[in-house]
Write a protein that binds this DNA or RNA. Sequence first.
DNA 1: CTGTTAGCGCTTTCAC
DNA 2: GTGAAAGCGCTAACAG
Lengths: 365, 365
Amino acid sequence: MADSIGDGTEGGGRVTSYDVARLAGVSQSAVSRAFRDGASISSALRARVQRAARELGYAPSNIARALITQRSRLIGVLVTETTTRNTPDILFHLGHEIQQAGSRMLVFTLAVDRVDEDGLRDLLSFDVDGVIAATTLAEDTLELCARRGLPVVLYNRHSPAGQADSVGCDSASGMRLLAAHLRQGGTRDAAFLAGPRGAPVSEDRLAAARAAFASCDMSLRPAVHADYSHASGRQAAPGLLAPRRRPDTIVCANDAMALGVIDACRHDLGLAVPGDVAVTGFDDVAQASWPAYALTTLAQPIAEQTRMAVRMIVERIEDSSPARERRLLLPRLVIRGSTRGGHDGDVIGRSGEGRKEGSKEALLS
Amino acid sequence: MADSIGDGTEGGGRVTSYDVARLAGVSQSAVSRAFRDGASISSALRARVQRAARELGYAPSNIARALITQRSRLIGVLVTETTTRNTPDILFHLGHEIQQAGSRMLVFTLAVDRVDEDGLRDLLSFDVDGVIAATTLAEDTLELCARRGLPVVLYNRHSPAGQADSVGCDSASGMRLLAAHLRQGGTRDAAFLAGPRGAPVSEDRLAAARAAFASCDMSLRPAVHADYSHASGRQAAPGLLAPRRRPDTIVCANDAMALGVIDACRHDLGLAVPGDVAVTGFDDVAQASWPAYALTTLAQPIAEQTRMAVRMIVERIEDSSPARERRLLLPRLVIRGSTRGGHDGDVIGRSGEGRKEGSKEALLS
DNA sequence: CTGTTAGCGCTTTCAC
DNA sequence: GTGAAAGCGCTAACAG
């Protein structure tokens, strides 16, 4: 019985639509149509072709198809090592969503957060249909993409000049939630542990924190910079918490650093969290919920954000209209044991759609 | 000055080698040769072509090239959600190494650890040059791949029938190191927390532990199964540690579960680690070294293993000889605070190349 | 609904 | 070292 792929005897090259056509006694077009839904072909013919195809173990070549359709079904995903390491869920969900959309994720991991012309050429060279970038892209690079007709969606950053669509997390509203919570817990003197200087996500969160704290009449010291990693957070802690003038709260730009700070407090400095110092993060990575840390943090709605990013890129690929929009989803405040006050496990705010801006769109909220 | 990609005026379609040829006043072949190193072309001509190319922002299409060369420069990487979540470093390093090798990683994330014929067809359809699979592939599926001429390298598992190359971690030698260490620390009665029933990595590690413990005259209770996650480890702990007949040591099949067990001990059950119970893991993920856990574990040499996997797949792609080999790299025992005895921070064993088996190769060690 | 024809963007003989 | 022509595996008009 002809039951499986590759019953064809030889061990050699690719099985082509031509082979299938011959075996089924039909034209190549028939084979082509049999493998594309919505094509006008009788179900009888389709069945015949399918049978011949599975007998030979035929699978249409995406590459050949791409050459003619101008759609590779490849989505380029740009990430830094930092993202891969500290927020692996982003990559995971992106892959999942892209797969759902019938495409595949081609991962470009950048050692440094900077895409130059070579990088762009690389992307173009692999014929990706679109790019989702969780990395920094200079405005002129974005312009080149636009000129090339290569859709780009920025993840957790945006193009001030509106040269690309973007989806991000509304840190402003998140930080307002956090500031209110901290205030209630008695925070008087908070320090901010930022990511690398100039890192968009960190800058955004820092600015948001500053604004939120100001409007709550709380002080926020000048930011100290680390590199987003647990180790760097742990390392920055002694300086941040010098006995002389120790802050009562440390707000971190991401969870990994916050976890490092907590470890430093308890294991290096002999400080109790949240007794001596409260610590907060941002992202809500898996480890934040582990009882050893119980980190109060703002949950970046990764599932929603990635879903949105993929939706946007798919739309742009189909549309290619140059309309640019910026979507901001709302983070939730997840209160756990690393801060004072509130009930452990409380979740404040609803994640999901927040604001939507764009050349064509009005502000929603 | 013609300094950057896309100075070409229009915003339209792709720039082809034909366009470049016309601008440079040469043939298409010349353009082709200018972009392939080792092609016979004068440096003068090459320079002229390059200039025209960058003026137009031309980048050769990998797809068109692939169609003729039969090399897509795409490596399919098969992973389960579990791997992505619990050992993100594998994916990260794989991507890194593949990129180094001049190819790109096409990620296929599987919801369940099982590749069937459809999955295979999918892979073939995307014209990957080869596959690195950190997932279960049935022997007959492997045979189909072989028949198709699709090279496959198995990661952390192997084909008993030798139908694919593989690279893994020598858990047997690792467990011997661990058993010796535990014995020294006074372990008398150890339990094993395994991953899902039938999961190859877990089965392998369990068998290795059993053998190692036996040869040290230590007992190892029948395995309890969880699902590799922190949550599942935490959940399994109460059963594992029932007061009646509590084991003095829990050996876990991976770090994530071990971390969950530690959390359960300290926060749910009021047990001290390692005072009341010692806990060990496997993998040495980032969190294992965080002071809140200080998990004694066997370090899977991910960097070496992924490098080896990529080297092997590249060789097979170039060679296509059907020789199959199995490589086992050595894990290191990293002693930290979750076990008794030994000095915190001690590292036992050298990671790196261990055994190498294969139809053509002799056993090395 | 089905087959025939042309051609996607590139590389590769083969002449020169 | 360089150009002309053919063709990779498929889809997209176009007839019938």
